[in-house]
Amino acid sequence: MRAILVVNPKATTTTGRGRDVLLRALRSEVDLTVEYTRRRGHAVALARTAARQGVDLVVTLGGDGTVNEVVNGLMTAGPSGGVGDRPPAERLPALAAVPGGSTNVFARALGLPREWPEATSMILEALRVGRARTIGLGLADDRYFTFCAGLGMDAAVIHRVERARRRGRVSTPSLYLRSIVSQYLVGAERRHPAIRLERPGETTDGELATVVIQNTAPWTYVGDREVNPNPDASFDLGLDVLALRRLRVQSTTRMVSQSLSRRPDPRGRQILRLHDLDEFTLVAEQPQAFQLDGDYLGERNKVRFTSVPAALRVIC
């Protein structure tokens, strides 16, 4: 089996020695080539080239951003390089995600252990016995995502965290909490809900303050604790949505508490939840912060979301 390991050298939870151990373990099972990413977007090109060369397996060592780039490279490996020329899952390399970032939502949502040595052992066992599953993806305009997207406050919080990390801060739950509080106090989302959700053949839902889209559950983690605003979201179904109509202190705090509970089921007058959607469009009166798989991608006025079923094989 031919495989490529795409390594983010800035992965936060591995060392050079750890990477050497991982390489030896993988080489005991596959014919392995190793590539290191050099810039943002590089993993897209590496994965696309690997798919076009007929590689059987792409392994990532990095966080959710690295996984997202590799997925987008695989899914655009057709002759035109566009989303309309997507090869079927069985003709694409399988994906194995070794957790190397700070949160690793995608790998953990697949049932892989949080620590990379244990996750690697589980992936190697799956390779030996031929265990894999095919999952659906989300598509936001022309970019795929694996587990979540957001327009509004959650994306603005991610932007704050990314800026803090560029200043040398470490990504921790406390950093996210401080960023949430800061954004809540100064963000325009609380005072001027500006997003509407449009579905074919359905009534438009308007005056939304922030929207979270999930392709699986959980949405994210706070340490070992799952955050589950849409607990029924699944790789095997369409997209789930949770939107807040108003970011009031009481209702927002209640939603967060419900999402963190052991039996999450967020409800309330300020909450809109939609399950298993094939497609919808978010339209904003003013540009809103936008994120996919935990990466801030700037501001958008309009994003069309589509569920892409049975899109990719994963080893887990």
Rank of each mutant, 00 (worst) to 15 (best):
D20P: 00
L127Y: 12
L292M: 11
S28H: 10
L112R: 05
V241K: 05
F235N: 07
S179H: 03
P264G: 07
R160I: 02
D20K: 12
C316R: 13
A155S: 12
R52H: 02
D232G: 03
A94L: 07
R38E: 15
R114N: 03
A289P: 06
T252Y: 12
L282V: 07
T103H: 00
D265L: 07
P93L: 11
H42T: 04
R40P: 00
A149L: 03
T220F: 13
E202M: 13
D142P: 00
S251I: 02
A96D: 10
P229G: 06
R133I: 01
G78R: 05
W116P: 01
T13L: 06
L95G: 02
R24S: 12
R273I: 04
N104T: 05
R91K: 08
T12C: 07
G41N: 07
R165F: 04
P264T: 08
R163V: 05
V67A: 11
T37W: 01
V6E: 02
V241L: 13
R269L: 11
G201H: 14
F235H: 12
L112K: 07
F290I: 08
G294Q: 05
L247N: 03
R38H: 13
V161I: 14
E69D: 12
F106W: 10
T120S: 12
G65V: 07
P229H: 10
F147A: 05
Q53D: 13
V129F: 09
G41I: 09
L197S: 01
G294A: 06
L242Y: 08
D265E: 12
P88G: 03
D295R: 07
A11K: 02
L244R: 02
E285H: 14
V249Y: 11
V283I: 15
A45E: 14
A43T: 08
A233D: 13
K302M: 14
I271L: 14
A107I: 06
A140K: 04
I135D: 05
E118P: 00
D154W: 02
R131P: 00
D154Q: 08
T76R: 14
D224T: 14
G54P: 05
R17F: 03
V44W: 12
E198C: 10
V34P: 00
P218F: 13
V186S: 15
T12L: 07
V249C: 04
V6M: 04
N68W: 05
R165C: 12
A194P: 00
T13V: 02
G268M: 03
G41C: 06
P231L: 07
D278W: 08
L110H: 11
E226A: 15
T220R: 08
R190H: 12
G223A: 11
L247Y: 09
E189N: 08
K302Q: 15
P87Q: 10
I271F: 06
L74F: 11
A140W: 09
A25F: 04
G81Y: 13
L137W: 06
